[in-house]
């Protein structure tokens, strides 16, 4: 990436949404518990295809990396994740409905 040609620096700024802040917090907490390192986070981010940089937002890439690292370190299995995600999808059609507090 360093040195590649690219267009103007984008100036749009957005405020972080709650789900993005939660992704950030999960990364900080899980890594502080020793389940993975920031280097593991970076590894998965950098291994992603160039298209993912265009098609996924910053924190979408982060949660994908957090997930990969947590599965690799054995905190939960792919099957456990899949089952829970199906259950969550059935709760509702918005983040608010699906995120039970």
């Amino acid at each position: 990436m360093g040195g590649d040609a690219a267009g103007p620096i984008p100036t749009e700024q957005h405020d972080f949404s709650l789900w993005e802040k939660r992704v950030d917090a999960l990364m900080v907490i899980a890594s502080s518990r020793g389940h993975f390192t920031v280097d593991g986070l970076r590894r998965v981010l950098e291994d992603m295809s160039p298209e993912s940089f265009e098609t996924m937002t910053y924190y979408e890439r982060w949660i994908a990396s957090v997930n990969q690292n947590l599965i690799e370190s054995g905190v939960y299995t792919t099957a456990e994740l899949a089952e829970r995600m199906s259950e969550i999808a059935a709760r509702g059609t918005t983040y608010g409905e699906a995120s039970r507090e």
């Binding site: 789900w19 949660i63 994908a64």
Partner: peptide
């Protein structure tokens, strides 16, 4: 990806 965050 939000589903994934909630699940994790």
């Amino acid at each position: 990806w939000q589903q994934m965050e909630i699940a994790i």
